[in-house]
């Protein structure tokens, strides 16, 4: 594998977006890019990552390779990332380490790190990425982040309901309750503020607040978030990158006993 990002912070943002959700991950590298999937320890949150060749300045993968890494270690190395430096990932044919080369031609500087790879035997779940959903919402990731931060302070359960009137996020705590209603809007001046809903039926689902607080860490990847909901199935929270690919979180709902 030889894969070069023209801006090293792209890879840093991707890794930082889920490093607190899962501890380790297998990156599966092939001609068609880098894909990964990992489940959190409580088996409630599934992270999927897709970095297609279009995200790289140059991308070459001669034979399919799996690179297993501890995310905490990789994240430490990526602290060196900045917008002035490129980052090339190298993995040899018999992979036992990942080489990260940061280059800042303007400053005549380069940095090289090596990360030991780990053998990860992880459960893989078969997720149909074309999974039909009853409700799809596209909205500003900034707005979503703020709503999650504000409401999750009040309760460890977070409810999402979507009707033709809009999307309602609500919490019911012991001492306080809160509700945020967002209606579809079109902001011609800044389309990242748009909110659109397409639905075939209404939904009303609850999730544990702590996972939503993990999910919003990925908001730096994109100024938009796509939400997909169906009754009694995991919800999908997806951040798509401008150049293709992105990071998605499947979150299992809570149900009333």
């Amino acid at each position: 594998l030889e894969a070069k990002f023209d801006d090293s912070t792209i890879f840093k943002k991707i890794i930082d977006s889920f490093k607190d959700s899962v501890t380790q991950i297998n990156f599966v590298c092939s001609e068609s890019g880098i894909e990964a999937q990992a489940i959190d320890d409580s088996r409630v949150l599934l992270v999927t990552v897709s970095i297609p060749p279009s995200c790289f300045e140059s991308y070459r993968c001669d034979r399919p390779t799996t690179i297993g890494v501890y995310l905490a270690s990789l994240a430490k190395l990526l602290k060196s990332a900045n917008t002035n430096s490129s980052l090339t990932l190298y993995v040899a044919d018999k992979p036992d380490e990942l080489l990260l080369l940061f280059e800042e031609p303007k400053n005549q500087k380069s940095m090289e790190y090596k990360l030991k790879l780990v053998d990860i035997t992880a459960d893989m779940l078969e997720v149909d990425s074309d999974m039909k959903s009853d409700v799809t919402v596209e909205m500003s990731s900034v707005e979503f982040t703020k709503t999650v931060r504000d409401l999750t302070q009040l309760s460890d359960s977070f409810t999402v309901s979507v009707t033709k009137d809009g999307i309602v996020f609500s919490v019911q705590g012991d001492t306080a309750q809160g509700k945020v209603l967002l209606q579809p809007r079109e902001d011609l001046a800044d389309e990242s503020n748009n909110l659109s809903i397409s639905m075939s039926k209404t939904i009303d689902l609850s999730f544990a607040s702590k996972y939503l607080l993990d999910i919003i860490k990925a908001a730096s990847i994109s100024n938009k978030i796509f939400l997909k909901f169906s009754d009694d199935t995991p919800a999908l929270f997806e951040f798509k990158m401008e150049k293709g690919g992105g990071v998605g979180f499947y979150l299992a709902p809570k149900y009333d006993d």
Binding site: I39, S42, R43, V44, L45, L46, D123, M124, L125, E126, V127, S157, S206, A208, T233, P234, Y250, A252, P253, K254, Y255, D256, D257
Partner: peptide, 14 residues
Amino acid sequence: LAKQDKLEDFFDFI
């Protein structure tokens, strides 16, 4: 009280 579903209740292992 709400209970928490697990992912494998919905997805199959590969």
